[in-house]
Structures are given as C-alpha cells and as structure tokens.
C-alpha cells in the first residue's frame, strides 16, 4: 500500500502573529516553522499502521519554496519514506489541492491523507478539494482510522456525535485530534536517515487562483477585564444579562 500525505509548513503554535507591508503580508521575522499539528497526528497514525501491517509506504508532499524543506525533512525523520516538494508558493487552497492531485496522478498511490486543516489558514478545504479533483470518495475529520486490506473504517466527527464510514481504496481522508494519541518526535537515527531519504522537487501545474488576501487585521482590543468578587457570582449573572446581553 502507498499513501500520499499532504503536510503543511506553518508557524509554531506559540508564534506571535504580526503583519508587514501595510498589513498585507505575514511577518516571518523570528517565526519558527513546524509541521501542522493535525498533519503530524496523521503521520503518527500512518506509522502505527505501517508497523502493524509491514505494508505501507508513506510519501509526504508539500507545496512550497525551498524554505519548507526543513519541515519535509522532519516528516522524513519521524518516519515517512520519501517526499515530494511542489516548487511553488501555496497561494490558495484550490491551487494547493490541484498540485497534490497531480502528484497523486503521477504516482501509484492507494489513498491520500492530510490533516483536517493547517493551523495558519485553518481553511479545512484541501483534502476535500483533492478528492474532487481526482473524483475519489472523501471522508472529512477522521478521529480514527483502521485499515484492513483495502478497506478503511473511519470514525469521523459530525455535529452532535460520530459517524463510522467504510470506504475502499482509493479514497481521501483528513485527520483530526484523536486519530493518534501523541505526535511522534524524531529520534537521532531518524534524523540521520532522513538526510538520505529521497526528496524530489517537481514544478507546479497551472491552476487558476480565485482568492487572495487583501488585508490582515488583529482582533479589536476589548479593554480591561472587569473583576467580580468571588462571593458574588450573582453580580456576574447580572452583568452578563444587562451589560453584555448574552444571557
């Protein structure tokens, strides 16, 4: 079995977010980049399946310039087998999804996975778009994945509960919290081996781009926190009703 795992290169979760050029661009100064946490959880689950079945090759794919290669190498160090970088700026979800779909077509993959969203744009779009480009079934927000031969049993979160879905390869699914317990950390051997694992760079295919960021802004500051004495929660209830008007 071969899986194509789309991984995004995102600012670390502790990053202070700032913008430059008239608030039109993200300020990359002093930002540490990581594998998006949902992608990392999916990679961890795929490695568990690889170890259980001894039959899974994991290819990671990222759309980005040469600056994303440390993130790709980290995925290889954690345990992915090889990698593809599509050499283009990840301008919007449709563009990225199209590139991943092309990589899928040019390989011999059985299924495609990705995290439910990247933690920078949190669009929750790429996996489903890849599926539609490839005319494949898709299952979003997988909180559990079991693979039995070519049949996947996926538990996905839905509004108000969970749904169990069965699907045969080929398919696309996006993973969320729950799909693996803790993301794996690369060990020294993994880091050494990652340097030698294949990382191919391919050009992007043409794809119309329909969305762009015009401007970024920060949430309005909300003023000081109004403190209420601990022995008077009734005052809090009054304020929530009369002042904030949320009760």
């Amino acid at each position: 079995m071969k899986v194509l795992l789309a991984v995004s290169h995102v600012p670390d979760t502790t990053s202070k977010i700032r913008f430059v050029n008239n608030d039109s661009e993200f300020d990359k100064t002093d930002i540490q980049y990581i594998i998006s946490p949902f992608d990392e959880l999916v990679l961890t689950r795929l490695l568990e399946i690889k170890e259980q079945t001894n039959n899974l090759d994991i290819t990671v794919v990222t759309v980005g310039g040469a600056d994303v290669e440390p993130t790709i190498r980290k995925a290889l160090a954690i345990g992915a087998d090889d990698a593809v970088r599509v050499d283009a700026e990840a301008v919007d979800a449709l563009f990225v999804a199209r590139q991943i779909a092309e990589v899928y077509k040019n390989g011999q993959f059985d299924f495609v996975m990705t995290g439910k969203e990247s933690i920078d744009f949190t669009g929750n779009q790429v996996g489903e778009m890849v599926a539609e480009f490839l005319n494949l079934p898709s299952v979003a927000s997988a909180a559990n994945l079991e693979l039995n031969g070519n049949v996947a049993t996926i538990t996905r979160e839905i509004d108000g509960g969970k749904e169990v879905v069965e699907v045969q390869t080929p398919f696309v699914t996006s993973g969320q919290k729950g799909i693996a317990k803790e993301p794996r950390i690369p060990n020294m051997r993994g880091i050494m081996m990652a340097r030698k694992k294949p990382l191919s760079v391919v050009p992007a295919v043409a794809q119309g781009v329909h969305t762009k960021v015009v401007k970024f802004s920060m949430p309005q500051s909300k003023g000081a926190c109004k403190m209420i004495p601990a022995d008077n929660p009734a005052e809090l209830v009054r304020l929530l009703h009369e002042e904030a008007k949320v009760l």
């Binding site: 599926a131 996905r156 839905i158």
Partner: peptide
Amino acid sequence: DHNYTGRSVAPRLAVRLDAGTVSG
C-alpha cells in the same frame, strides 16, 4: 454553515464549479 457538513462539501463544490471559496 461552517460545520462538519459544510467543511465536507463546500471545498468539493468549489472544484466542481471552478469557484473561489472562503471558509469560516
């Protein structure tokens, strides 16, 4: 709606209709 169903369908529909999409 930006709920589980919207997240599953809106991106696919964007590809189908070659439409720009913004979520959330």
